[in-house]
Amino acid sequence: MFGTGLLKGLGVTFKHLVDTYKDDMQSTPARYQGSDDRGKGLKVIDQPVDQEGLLTIQYPEERRLLPERFRYIPMLIWDTETDEERCTACGICAKVCPPQCIWITRATDEAGKPVTRPQDFFIDATICMSCNYCVEFCPFDAIKMDHDAELASFERFPHLVYDKGELTVPLDYYAALWPVQYAEEQERRAQEAAEARAKEEAKAARAAAKEVKEETPAPEAKLSRAEELKQKAMERARQRREAQS
């Protein structure tokens, strides 16, 4: 019959309307259940999966619970344990960055020799595509993804080009945002450090044992050996030349 479809559709929308009020009455007190305010006094809504419909997030009073893996713009980690930055200016992040939005200058010491620290570190947020590659391929856990999305500004330059100062965050900040990954990482780092230490010790022990057995060849002896090889090579070359002519 003509019109039944329309009525049915109206029924669906009406049910939706009633449901929202019903839902509000039932769940308003429980609205912030599972909410995690992280000590900032914010109301963070974790959408329950078994609730019909969706909770409206009344930003800025309420926030959506961001998952740990959420990524926006990278940040650099300042290791508060050792009180230095983790970045060694190896440049891998700048190499893998798809839109090439990372600029790194390696620092130099007083003598002008490059050291493994960045002098400058720029990320152009107007180019960054939040792809996570810099984080994924950083071998030193020095660059991570920040959850802070509130970056809007009135000016584009230089406000949206972040330098090292603006990008650096303390380790605790990262640990708070990425608890699971941080724990895994700390475990791995501790293990690696232990392994490195063990290796170092073993090496030292081996070296000590070796020293007992035989004296290392003196530098003069090494030099004379090199000289000998060089002489031989020259001799061979001379013979070849003669054979050709």
Partner: peptide, 15 residues
């Protein structure tokens, strides 16, 4: 080809 060599290790940010 990427990566561009102007990004590291003597890179000044340039638009």
């Amino acid at each position: 080809q990427k990566p561009f060599r102007s990004r590291h290790p003597r890179a000044d940010f340039a638009r």
